[in-house]
Design a protein around this nucleic acid. Structure first.
Length: 527
RNA sequence: GCCGAUGUAGCUCAGUCCGGUUAGAGCGAGGGAUUCAUAAACCCUAGGUCGGAGGUUCGAGUCCUCCCAUCGGCACCA
């Protein structure tokens, strides 16, 4: 409707050599929640995700399987696309680094860096593991006593000519950037980490390799391929066709949020801004680095077999529903600076406490009473006064809190705002006891006021909860007798308190079925 | 090794910056009362060496020192 204020949000592009797992689903889900919220608020959202498909690992994996790297990439990129469908993610584009649109622009942008002198040909020297065909860092070389950790053979001193990015030239400008924008890296603990390392000084970084060929050729020197990280980072720009002349997509630049996992913070918080400075492009507003999921108290690893992979996730979705999965991701996930533990029992508890006992129950008792006492027709609010209670004010406060939380990417706080309003409704019902008031024909005005306000508060809460649990909220709306469409981008108006539902026909609804613990993935874990 | 965090009730955490009556919340668990609701919401119940030791102070989860444990970062790693 008011589509004006652009909002660009990105996930990292996922490396196709990995299998999709909870980490990928998590990052993408966070972005989806935010994207939905912003669209509902009328912002002009562009939500990007995709796959990173180059690099020596992909080349080797493909070789091992006797297929081409592109075939391997195609196969695994399809797996990642499946994630998008499974979770009903609303990304506006899915970029792959092997697509011509990306390769063409990366070459153009790298050429630009070469022209400005930010990229130069230099010599790299370091410890080389001949068996593994890769360089190891000075630190790692020392750790392994200058021997290959695989073969045990001594590492050799080797060098190769590479193109370097002049990162060292951007030290001061990066420091200024961080100073001028305290929210550039979130959460704050991550920002401090980056600042600490930044103080240690910056060295130029190689951006090409010659020891493998599965990558984008360096413009004008095709023996070199562009190393994966710069290839990958530039996806944020190439998806918006920034190096491709005029395009409608340019309006979305720069990103409001680059949402990433903490392992790739350095690239996004330091190298990426420096590259953008070199390209004279505006900086993103925020790099948000979340932490990791661990599983039942243990780090996820292949040897433990505790990876929460797609089949595992599918079992949760089958039992609890997609909205429950999203709710758990957002509310119990590692949004902050510490890792979060995925626990089957915790999942069940969160589902029962928040969704069944609060969201579901509040909607249920409200619609049930409307059905029983008003034949399902929402009465007019007669303006009865309940000292100490102000649901309209509470709703306004909840909406304000929600907006602030969303702006801050505090998605869990946004959920709190929504569910908190429902808790207030519950408390209001307990205090005013409409089920007792209903027994007295002389108190119809009071009863009408209570229920009219309850259902209005439920409606507003449902709007706030929609980005996280869209499926169930879209089921609730018809039961409240309203027809909301987040696509209209008019959250402001929709979330305003009023007599919107007066005269609407409601019906009793049970949103989240109680789940028998014996039939859940938790039961499997216990056995 | 270096830098930085964290360690409080069964679980997840708040409180520690600006030290002061009987250390808090949510969830779980136990009990009670009730029925509008999906045996839901509501009320009561947790007596936990606030990681350990020492110190400063009239008084310390709250400040200082040391120790222990766990975790994160340490640049080419997606």
């Amino acid at each position: 409707m008011t589509h004006s204020d652009p909002a660009y949000i990105t996930t990292p592009i996922y490396y196709v050599n990995d299998r999709p797992h909870i980490g990928h689903a998590y990052t993408t889900t966070l972005c989806d929640v935010w994207a939905r919220a912003m669209r509902f608020m009328g912002r002009d959202v562009f939500f990007l995700t995709g796959t990173d498909e180059h690099g020596v690992k992909v080349e080797k994996s493909a070789e091992a399987r006797g297929i081409s790297p592109q075939a391997l990439a195609d196969e695994n990129a399809a797996e990642f696309r499946k994630v998008m469908e499974m979770f009903d993610l609303t990304n506006d584009d899915f970029i792959r680094t092997t697509e011509p649109r990306h390769e063409r622009q990366v070459q153009a942008l790298v050429k630009r860096l070469l022209d400005t002198g930010d990229v130069y040909l230099g010599e790299f020297e370091g410890w080389y593991d001949e068996g593994q065909e890769e360089y190891v860092t000075e630190t790692k070389a020392k750790e392994s006593d200058f021997k290959s950790p695989i073969s045990g053979k001594p590492l050799v001193r080797a060098n190769e000519r590479n193109y370097y990015f002049k990162l060292s030239a951007y030290q001061e400008r990066l420091e200024s950037l961080f100073e001028a924008n305290p929210g550039f890296v979130k959460p704050e603990a991550r920002r401090n980490e980056v600042l600490g390392r930044l103080r240690g000084g910056l060295q130029d970084v190689p951006i090409t390799r010659t020891n493998f060929s599965w990558g984008i050729p360096f413009p004008g020197d095709e023996e070199h391929v562009i190393y994966v990280w710069i290839d990958a980072l530039l996806n944020y720009a190439t998806a918006l066709e920034l190096a491709d002349g005029a395009s409608d997509r340019h309006r979305h630049w720069p990103a409001a949020y680059h949402v990433i996992g903490k392992e790739i913070l350095w690239f996004h918080a330091v190298i990426w801004p420096a590259v953008l400075m070199a390209l004279e492009l505006p900086q993103p507003a925020c790099v948000y680095a979340h932490s990791f999921w661990i599983s039942e108290g243990q780090k996820m690893s292949k040897s433990l077999g505790n990876f929460i992979d797609l089949p595992t996730i599918e079992r949760y979705v089958d039992v609890y529903g997609l909205d429950a999965w999203r709710w758990y991701m957002v509310n119990n996930g590692p949004l902050g600076a510490t890792d979060a533990d995925f626990q089957a029992t915790g999942f069940h508890e969160t589902y029962t406490t928040d969704l069944v006992n609060t969201v579901g129950n509040c909607a249920s008792r409200t619609t049930a009473m409307l059905g029983k006492y008003f034949d399902g027709i929402v009465p007019a609010d007669t303006g009865f006064d309940f000292p100490g209670w102000d649901l309209a004010g509470d709703a306004g406060t909840a909406v304000a809190k929600w907006r602030a939380a969303m702006a801050d990417f505090a998605l869990d706080d946004a959920c709190d705002a929504g569910i908190g309003l429902l808790r207030t409704v519950d408390a209001f019902i307990n205090a005013t006891e409409p089920f007792k008031v209903a027994k007295d024909e002389g108190r119809r005005d009071e009863l009408a006021s209570i229920l009219a306000r309850c259902v209005e508060a439920v409606r507003i809460a449902s709007v706030l909860l929609w980005p996280v649990i869209p499926g169930r909220m879209e089921t609730l709306w018809p039961a409240l007798g309203c027809d909301l469409d987040p696509g209209r981008g008019d959250l402001e108006a929709v979330a305003a308190w009023g007599d919107t539902l007066k005269g609407a026909t409601t019906r009793k609804i049970a949103l989240f079925p109680r789940v028998d613990p014996a039939t859940t993935p938790a039961a499997d874990v216990a056995s």
